[in-house]
Computed example of a mutant assay.
Amino acid sequence: MSLSDLQPGQILARGVARALRGYGMASVAEMPLRPRLRADLMALGPKGEIWIVECKSCRADFQSDRKWQGYLDWCDRYFWAVDAEFPTDLLPPETGLFIADGFGAEMLREAPLSKLAPARRKALTLDFARRAAHRLQVANDPRLPILPED
């Protein structure tokens, strides 16, 4: 799939996913958390830490997002990913920030740590692993049915 086939938020997610590998993180795009709550990018670190990155392609996209604070209960660190033209002063200063494009991203502000409860971490880690494995299986065998949430 080329960049021209992707939506603006997907382009940002691609660049951030590439950058996250440099932090030792594995990521899954469009990760369902609960009904009507889906993280643009969820990343799992080598020590089990969980980051969520929400990708915003423009001011209107950010201003229409009424549910971003709901993601805070589902991660250890929460970040925004925007492009270089985005007015970053709109973003809450108590969140992390990546500036991204389709080829990479740079972390401008680290998100504060807010550790998940152990039971939620375990459940999210299992969901993450299963989602990633199902997607890999479908990529290797396209005739398999896709999960309803994907």
Score class of each variant (00 low, 15 high):
residue 51 W to S: 05
residue 26 A to H: 03
residue 97 L to E: 02
residue 76 D to Y: 14
residue 59 R to P: 01
residue 107 M to S: 04
residue 25 M to L: 13
residue 14 R to S: 07
residue 61 D to G: 05
residue 82 V to T: 11
residue 113 L to D: 09
residue 46 P to R: 14
residue 75 C to P: 10
residue 61 D to Q: 07
residue 15 G to Q: 03
residue 93 P to W: 11
residue 16 V to M: 04
residue 73 D to T: 12
residue 106 E to Q: 10
residue 57 S to W: 05
residue 25 M to K: 02
residue 77 R to K: 15
residue 56 K to P: 04
residue 60 A to V: 10
residue 13 A to K: 05
residue 15 G to T: 06
residue 84 A to K: 11
residue 113 L to S: 02
residue 28 V to M: 09
residue 73 D to I: 09
residue 32 P to G: 08
residue 41 L to S: 06
residue 40 D to T: 03
residue 91 L to H: 05
residue 56 K to H: 10
residue 18 R to G: 02
residue 54 E to Q: 07
residue 58 C to P: 05
residue 115 K to L: 14
residue 15 G to I: 08
residue 109 R to N: 03
residue 74 W to K: 10
residue 107 M to L: 09
residue 50 I to Y: 03
residue 54 E to K: 03
residue 68 W to V: 13
residue 66 R to E: 05
residue 70 G to C: 07
residue 78 Y to E: 15
residue 58 C to G: 14
residue 61 D to M: 10
residue 94 E to V: 05
residue 116 L to P: 04
residue 28 V to N: 08
residue 78 Y to S: 15
residue 31 M to L: 14
residue 14 R to H: 08
residue 36 R to S: 08
residue 31 M to R: 00
residue 102 G to A: 10
residue 16 V to G: 02
residue 99 I to M: 12
residue 31 M to F: 15
residue 50 I to R: 01
residue 49 E to Q: 14
residue 73 D to V: 12
residue 13 A to W: 02
residue 79 F to Y: 15
residue 61 D to Y: 13
residue 85 E to V: 06
residue 64 S to Y: 04
residue 53 V to E: 05
residue 80 W to G: 12
residue 80 W to S: 14
residue 39 A to W: 01
residue 55 C to V: 09
residue 106 E to F: 02
residue 36 R to A: 06
residue 111 A to M: 00
residue 64 S to I: 01
residue 77 R to C: 12
residue 42 M to D: 01
residue 18 R to Y: 06
residue 63 Q to M: 12
residue 20 L to C: 06
residue 42 M to H: 01
residue 70 G to W: 08
residue 27 S to H: 02
residue 81 A to H: 09
residue 62 F to Y: 14
residue 67 K to A: 07
